[in-house]
Amino acid sequence: MTLDKVKPGETVKVVKINNTGAIKRRIMDMGLTKGVEVYVRKVAPLGDPMELTVRGYELSVRKEDAAMIEVIQGGKN
């Protein structure tokens, strides 16, 4: 499953980031690394981007970038 498919209110775990170079680095620098728990807080009023809680802060990511992040269900709810 990829992160963009996760519904608001769910918590998932990052498995892999299918990207390279600057974008991957940027996403990872912000704390979205392998094994980290991500809570999907909400989706913007117009359906995109989505707001995540990761490592205790709020991050906004577009769905097309989230689609590059592979996740599995997991973590505490």
């Binding site: 974008i23 940027r26 996403i27 912000m30 981007p49 707001e51 802060y57 709020e58 991050l59 906004s60 990511v61 577009r62 097309e64 970038d65």
Partner: peptide, 9 residues
């Protein structure tokens, strides 16, 4: 381009 942005409290 991509949009990765911190949302401050």
């Amino acid at each position: 381009a991509e949009f990765v942005m911190e949302l401050p409290s």
